[in-house]
Nucleic acid binder design. Structure first.
Lengths: 337, 337
DNA sequence: TTGTATGCGTTATCAA
DNA sequence: TTGATAACGCATACAA
């Protein structure tokens, strides 16, 4: 493997000139640059980025930490981060935490180890290093996205979960539903709390009284959607719609309802939040709230870049818009005789 | 940020000893090691991995290149790679190619740039560097998975696409279907060709004559599943089942069929391949072939590790098993009167 | 416009 | 068991 020294020798210049030709081409004479280009070509030289990063004290890489990429939401998010990173010559390293603190911490060490410049976090947990921070300390290069814990104070990009949930609840109420069930997520998570509060807010605004007996807890998985819907149906309580805190549970709920020979939306309307790709092609198509997943990733990366320039002056929060998407899974309740 | 020198000073030893205490603890006296541990603790020292990698000429990182992580298959695959990588102290960097040669090549440069030791490729394209190889050259640290082009000769892990497809075709035939349509992928890809050949093989084995008019081409997307099913239904040809080359298209097909007021499987049986998570909870549940996605990732990473130890002696191919999963989307054809 | 020389933070060789 | 020191490959301050 050839290095900068070989190129310098071959081109008959100093290594400093080679380095400049690569990094600040305008500082080197055209003719010299040409010789260097030839040498690079001839020796198939590839700069050692490790050495460059070590010297410049900058890795030009960021880590995205996510619990799992089994989630289609995550995918689009990562794509968004990639988009902006690419434009800025930054590499993106994806880290999977599985929700485990130790794994997250180990990945976070890559920052201390200078292998990455910052961390973009799409998870409910956060690095231990963050907890150990006191007001006087230097700010940490961490950007939070959506699922953050509200306790930590870092640059963040988020959706208005509360209003999004209220909006879809309003949609269902406007169709004429009055007995409306809720399939919630883990109430330990801020996002879940916000969405549930949003559902309730939307119902109250429509003059519908809340009924805690129609609220069932899940964990955002397909499977818990099935379980939740079954629990509701088994309870014997009457309801004509289920508001689910995410699409996965909604798809599970639809599956469970169909499995009992009931029909969506004729017997029960179902809604989600997220607008996964599969939501459009479910049977029936799922009424949901579209989140600009990719844009969220893009904004997160921009916050990261801002931070690199000015750790203290960087923007603290970006709120991205959501949008109601009505499909076949919601309809007016069928009058019972 | 403290470095190894600070620790050495604080502990009253040389930097060589500190380095040893970290990498070969058994070579240093217990008492010394303790002093060093204390110093590390006190100064919150984190080794600079960049410097270490530069010196050791090894990054302990591999790149996984995938077209997109919008595909749930990809997710499990990455998870598998992570599993094995983690056990071996190797970092995993995810690269998205979007099927673009230039993006793949740019990521491949990270290997020349020493930021990564190898590339695991889950894509139909391959780095230009691979094309430029001639028999005498050193082998490249590239492992191929599943969607490789059969032209390139590198360590690879794959599924027996041919037999998998034949098996599910046999299942449908055994239910009594005789007019069976095929929704294929891009025939430029080896995997698609294998699966289509497999379908035809399975049908022939069951004594069913092939009918090219019942073969429609798609691109593995949900949307093309919808389009393909519509094309078949519009053709006016009779068929009682559709074999799809992947789950996404199958889910799209089910959606299209339902949208026309037809029922799956009563009117038309549908099958996929992949066993995506969503396949289980579709309406109806999708009959498909399960691929051990995570295991594929694990095997790929193992091949990579083997390669690192012995570039020439490493295993060349691993074939992982598949499994037929029968769900509600297939049934015996309904007798027409 | 170019060259010299130093340092980035490690690891590894060799000698003690 | 430990220490001194030379790389690893590059970027940059300073000098020319």
């Amino acid at each position: 493997m050839s290095n900068i020294k070989d190129i310098a020798a071959k081109a008959g210049v100093s290594i400093a000139t080679v380095s400049r030709a690569l990094r600040q081409p305008n500082l080197v004479k055209e003719k010299t640059a040409l010789k260097i280009r030839d040498a690079i070509e001839a020796l198939d030289y590839k700069p050692n980025m490790l050495a460059a990063s070590l010297r410049r004290q900058k890795a030009d890489a960021v880590i995205i930490a996510v619990p799992s990429i089994h989630n289609p939401f995550t995918s689009a998010f990562v794509q968004g981060v990639e988009n902006v990173a690419r434009e800025n010559g930054t590499k993106v390293l994806l880290a999977l935490t599985e929700g485990r603190q130790d794994l997250l911490d180990r990945h976070y060490e890559m920052i201390a180890g200078k292998q990455a410049d910052g961390l973009i976090l799409l998870d409910v947990i956060s690095p231990s290093a963050l907890a150990g921070q006191t007001p006087g300390d230097d700010p940490l290069p961490i950007v939070l996205a959506c699922e953050y814990d509200s306790a930590v104070d870092q640059p963040r990009v988020r959706v208005n979960d509360l209003e999004a949930a209220a909006e879809i609840a309003a949609h269902v109420a406007s169709l004429g539903h009055r007995q409306i069930a809720i399939l919630s997520g883990p109430s330990a998570q801020r996002m879940s709390r916000d969405r549930q509060r949003g559902f309730r807010l939307g119902l109250r605004r429509a003059g519908i009284e809340e009924d805690d007996a129609l609220v069932v807890g899940g964990d955002y998985s397909l499977r818990s959607g099935v379980a939740g819907a079954n629990a509701l149906l088994d309870s014997g309580r009457k309801f004509t719609a289920i508001l689910c805190e995410n699409d996965e549970m909604a798809l599970g709920a639809i599956h469970a309802i169909a499995a009992r020979g009931l029909r969506v939306p004729d017997d029960i309307s179902v809604t989600g939040i997220d607008n996964l790709r599969f939501a459009e092609f479910a049977n029936p198509g799922l009424t949901t709230i579209a989140l600009p997943n990719e844009q969220i990733g893009e904004e997160a990366m921009r916050l990261m870049l801002d931070f690199a320039i000015d750790p203290d002056g960087a923007r603290r929060e970006v709120v991205v818009p959501h949008r109601l998407i009505v499909r076949g899974s919601t309809a007016a309740p069928t009058p019972r005789m």
